[in-house]
Design a protein around this nucleic acid. Structure first.
Lengths: 329, 329
DNA sequence: CTGAAAGCGCTTACAG
DNA sequence: CTGAAAGCGCTTACAG
């Protein structure tokens, strides 16, 4: 049998309510009584049962996090940011991977709901109607991270993707590139698709250059390599490449080098994210630096505000991005 | 107010106990009654409160995971393996980062204990006495992952690090290398230190070659680069490098290239882990492939066995490693 | 400042 | 096959 609040109360010669009060600091307790309680706790090695507390107080001090895949570096770093802030506010996290599958996402929301999480952080692709409905049913605060709700119904933390893509493209233009390919994610993707294509197009249009958008099935290196090889094989050799992830950017560099093209001499490459990978290639990758860790941290901080009913000014956060220039451009 | 089991019971015209039984399948329920209950659940959109269930049943269906840092690719992939198996067995995970700090590790164990996790998966460095004592107090199953207990008191999942280091070194020797440097972790580290140094030494000794071990403060790229530059600057140019992580391996390649040495022409490099990074460099990195995902999966699978008191044969798992040959050797 | 008691939403012997 | 009731270990009005 483990030690309960009852044992502590008995040992200290007070009521359970009093023990609870010193534990939670929910009311003033005479200094002397407090000391007796603390001593008893110490002596017995008592640890409060958070599950019982959760049932009684209807607050579990845990936040659910749903992401497509923790093993992706971008996601892992974001989760780290979330976790650090959660710890700071004495919350723990329940983490689940959805692989971006809508049914799984809904499933996970349900399970977390059953676990009575105090809030949920969500990273995904499209916000389907079913998803929104499930969030609504769960009746707990939700914050999106690196995920946009085109209709702004749910608070979210992102960068300005359109502007970032514009900046990246513009940078290549200023370096003298005229035939710039965009290695894009799925066109209908609300983060790595549409808005970045828009920013890219805008920059080209200003110069009257032709757009050349290629969708990659995923943002992973292997797919990037494949896609790029296809482009180079068709002899549509660009002089600039904007890739929507560092992995695609590295793939771009390698595909060019493998084809005998010099980087940044003949082809310049710029990417998105500034994960650690960007500096682990030669030439090192110029990239739009996203504050990935901060995005997770801000999302979690915002969550704590929502949970504690603190006043909030903003609703959709757009964190600043930056251009980290290295030797691939 | 949310819907409780009481509401369902009333709607179905049965007792709470019966609802509980159909929910958990803990006893046979007449087909007709069952249907009534299921209909009521459906109609009301009832979801059982897992916290209340946890309090009553003393099982929370959650596993605590403590790792140094999820944002490290090795760790992230391992965690993914854990999570997938947990999902398979209907468990959820609480994830925390310790940054390898002993006090923090002990703290986290305490918090997870309060949360009544059914078991804990632990990845860390040294198993201090305090740590072991805390595990013991918590009275729940613990499994180590990519972490060794030199005295075998706690079940664990690893590869045979000594053998792996031997294999890597031997491979370079067979490729003709005579001056092989080991880019090692801290010498007293029970995973990336001692055992790998031992395997390395053994392989060299067989040939009568001289050992040259250099400790890196961390296993990260930046430190590897720094360390390697020091070695090359001292004009102690090796013809082979064994690095204990892929990041160090990539650093080795780049340091050599930057110093005008050809890889694998003048210097051959081999590393550990086979994370995705290994194939994202040129030349691609030859590396000891660790079944990272599987290590996490096996550890979690073993945990489910411990929790359910299934008979277990083994205690310390040594998963097979492999040598993935690429172009850096 | 402190205590007695109800209640959080389940599970689980115990009866029948 | 099903129900009534105790109990899991806390918190929280309510009294005093």
């Amino acid at each position: 049998m483990s030690i309960t609040i009852y044992d502590v109360a008995k040992a200290a010669g007070v009521s359970m309510a009093t023990v609870s009060r010193v534990l939670n600091g929910t009311a003033v307790v005479k200094e002397e009584t407090k000391k007796k309680v603390l001593d008893a706790i110490q002596m017995l090695g008592y640890r409060p049962n958070a599950v019982a507390r959760g049932l009684a107080s209807k607050k579990t001090k845990t936040i659910g996090i749903i992401v497509p895949d923790v093993s992706a570096p971008f996601v892992a770093e974001m989760v780290r940011g979330m976790e650090d802030i959660a710890t700071m506010y004495q919350y723990q996290i329940i983490l689940s991977n959805s692989d971006g599958q809508p049914e799984r996402e809904i499933d996970l929301i349900g399970t977390m709901w059953e676990k009575q999480v105090d809030g949920m952080l969500f990273m995904g692709n499209h916000l389907t109607g079913d998803l929104l409905k499930t969030f609504e049913q769960a009746q707990i605060p939700v914050v999106l991270c690196a995920t946009v709700d085109p209709e702004g119904r749910i608070p979210s933390v992102n960068i300005n993707n359109e502007q970032a893509a514009y900046d990246a493209t513009r940078f290549l233009i200023e370096k003298g590139c005229k035939h710039i390919v965009l290695l894009s994610g799925a066109t209908d993707h609300p983060v790595v698709g549409k808005p970045r294509q828009k920013g890219y197009r805008k920059a080209l249009k200003q110069e009257g250059y032709q757009a050349h958008i290629v969708e990659c099935p995923t943002l992973r290196y292997e797919d990037g390599l494949e896609t790029l090889k296809g482009i180079l094989r068709d002899n549509q050799i660009p002089d600039g490449i904007v890739a929507v992830s560092d992995e695609l950017g590295v793939a771009a560099i390698h595909a060019c080098l493998d084809a005998g093209l010099s980087v940044p001499g003949q082809v310049k490459a710029i990417a998105f994210d500034n994960t650690r990978l960007a500096s682990m290639v030669r030439p090192e990758l110029t990239t739009i630096s996203q504050p990935i860790y901060d995005m997770g941290a801000v999302a979690m901080r915002f969550m704590t505000k929502l949970i504690h009913d603190e006043p909030v000014e903003e609703f959709s956060f757009l964190l600043p991005h930056d251009l980290t220039v290295r030797s691939s451009t």
